[in-house]
């Protein structure tokens, strides 16, 4: 469990990125922080592994105040996946995945074997192990990033817009993959995105942020859609434009789901969900 207790962050230039933020992130679930740029979502994420230290308040992981933990050691115990993968361009795929275990003193052969197993976990062909990151596609690089994040078998996995830079088709593939991995591994995932659909797909708990790290609403995707707290939330999830108000129309004998803007959202399936 991760707890934010009255956390504020003012940067040296005077910007108040986060103001009196309180939140509990339950263990073994996915919490998605979603908001536009300037909402402080990345700052909040980076506070969890002490890449950024709060100017006020405290953050606890289970019962440990993280300000008492040694940053480098703390970071090695937390998985981190970022946009543009952040892989080391001078190391092969297998070495990149093994980075953190090697830093923590795991012997090379053991770290390698584990790296290859992780490649299976994230759906990468083992034949790519000796390639360099620049020889991979964007989607493959992102998978390597996820594998690296999982390498020390961390309880917590931080993901900073990990799928932001890949094309929509690959993104949806990676999202499904993450859902599958999370079903098996049940990590405490903190996921940052500006894409509300991604947030609803991945989040057990979704945190909608306004400027300055102000929470607009916290809840399950269903909660937020069913009871949007205010106009800001309505706008953000697209309810004000009718995107979330679906109705059924009959088209050539089939039931078609149409949203408030008239856009076809899909076909109503009378069978079991696929």
């Amino acid at each position: 469990m991760i707890t934010f207790d009255s956390v504020s962050k003012r940067f040296p230039d005077g910007t108040l990125a986060v103001d009196d933020f309180n939140l509990t992130l339950p263990s073994r679930t996915t919490t998605v922080l979603v908001g536009s740029s300037g909402s402080g979502k990345t700052t909040l994420l980076r506070m969890i592994n002490r890449m950024v230290d709060p100017t006020a308040g405290s953050i606890r992981i289970d019962d440990d105040d993280i300000s008492t933990l040694e940053p480098v050691k703390l970071r090695r115990s937390i998985g981190y996946v970022m946009q543009n993968s952040g892989l080391l361009p001078h190391r092969t795929v297998a070495d990149n995945i093994a980075t953190v275990p090697l830093l923590s003193g795991v012997k090379r052969p053991a770290a390698r074997t584990q790296a290859l197993e992780l490649m299976d976990t994230v759906g990468l062909d083992r034949s790519l192990a000796e390639r360099y990151p620049s020889q991979l596609s964007g989607g493959q690089q992102q998978r390597v990033g996820v594998a690296r994040g999982l390498a020390v078998n961390p309880n917590i996995l931080l993901m900073d817009e990990p799928f932001g830079a890949v094309d929509p088709l690959v993104r949806s593939e990676l999202q499904q993959e993450l859902v599958r991995i999370q079903k098996d591994l049940a990590k405490t995932i903190v996921f940052v995105t500006h894409d509300i659909d991604e947030a609803f797909l991945l989040g057990d708990q979704v945190v909608l942020l306004k400027t300055g790290g102000k929470i607009a609403q916290v809840g399950t995707p269903a909660d937020i859609l069913a009871n949007p707290a205010d106009d800001f939330v309505n706008t953000f999830v697209g309810a004000d434009r009718g995107r979330r108000a679906l109705r059924i129309e009959q088209v050539s004998g089939r039931q078609v789901v149409v949203d408030g803007t008239g856009r076809i959202a899909g076909i109503l399936n009378d069978g079991t969900p696929t």
């Binding site: 480098v72 970071r75 970022m82 543009n84 361009p89 953190v100």
Partner: peptide
Amino acid sequence: VSKDVTQSATAVGFG
């Protein structure tokens, strides 16, 4: 040297 890379190196626990 790309800032992304050095930042991510710090984030995964390079001293």
